[in-house]
C-alpha cells in the first residue's frame, strides 16, 4: 500500500495499444498496468506477464474433493456404520462415483473462485483507486509508474506520440481498502494537494 505517481495514457484502439505497449517497454518505462474493458488476448504476453497457474490450483482442489468424498464415504460405510443396502457390498464403489464427481467439481470450482478473488483482491466493500472511469467502457488505460528520476513531461510526450488520445499525471493508491463507492472514504496519508 503506497501512493505513487503515475503518467496515465488512454488509448481507444487495441491495434494502437499493442505497438504502444511494445514501445513503452522498449523505451524502458515501467508499465504499472493496463486497464481494459474486455479481455484482450495476447496483451498479457505483450506486457511480459507470466502465465497464471490458477489451473493447477483448480486441479489440486479437485483432487482434494475426490479424496474427501471417497475417504469419507468409505469410512462411513465400511468402518463407522456399515449398512446393508439392497444386498450391495459395504464397499460399493460404483454407487459412490456420482458423489465423488460432484465433490470434485464443487471443491475445484469454489476453491478456484476464492483463489481468484484472493489473488485479484476482489470482494464486496473493497475499494480501489481508478485511473479512468472509461476503462470499463471503451478506453484502454495504460498507467506508467514514475520514480524519482522519471521526467513526467517526457513520458507524457512519449505516450502522446505513440497514439494515446489523452495523457494525465495522477497520484494514486496502488492497494485496496475497505470502503464504498458512493462515499469518499479517504485513506490515511493520502496527499490532498492537487496534481500539478
Amino acid at each position: 500500500m503506497a501512493i505513487k505517481k503515475f503518467v496515465v495514457g488512454c488509448f481507444d484502439d487495441e491495434q494502437v495499444l499493442f505497438p504502444a505497449v511494445k514501445n513503452v517497454r522498449k523505451a524502458g518505462y515501467r508499465i504499472h498496468d493496463v486497464y481494459t474493458p474486455m479481455p484482450i488476448h495476447g496483451l498479457d504476453a505483450a506486457m511480459g506477464l507470466r502465465d497464471t497457474s490458477l489451473h493447477t490450483a483448480g486441479f489440486i482442489y479437485g483432487i482434494a474433493g475426490t479424496t474427501t468424498a471417497f475417504s469419507f464415504i468409505t469410512w462411513v460405510f465400511t468402518t463407522d456404520w456399515p449398512m446393508n443396502i439392497g444386498g450391495k457390498p459395504f464397499f460399493s464403489l460404483p454407487a459412490w462415483i456420482p458423489i465423488m464427481f460432484e465433490l470434485t467439481v464443487l471443491f475445484s470450482a469454489v476453491g478456484m473462485v476464492l483463489t481468484f478473488c484472493y489473488l485479484c483482491q476482489l470482494a464486496p466493500f473493497v475499494k480501489k483507486d481508478h485511473f479512468h472511469l472509461r476503462a470499463t467502457d471503451d478506453l484502454f488505460v495504460m498507467a506508467i509508474e514514475c520514480t524519482d528520476k522519471t521526467n513526467e513531461t517526457e513520458v507524457s510526450q512519449f505516450l502522446s506520440n505513440i497514439g494515446a488520445i489523452d495523457v494525465t499525471t495522477q497520484y494514486k493508491e496502488t492497494g485496496w481498502w475497505l470502503g464504498r463507492y458512493d462515499k469518499e472514504t479517504q485513506l490515511f496519508g493520502k496527499p490532498t494537494e492537487a496534481v500539478s
Partner: peptide, 15 residues
C-alpha cells in the same frame, strides 16, 4: 467487488 479491468485480472479471469 472492486473490479478494475487490470490485465493481470483479465488473464486470471479468462483462465
Amino acid at each position: 467487488f472492486g473490479w478494475t479491468g487490470s490485465t493481470k485480472h483479465w488473464q486470471r479471469h479468462e483462465a
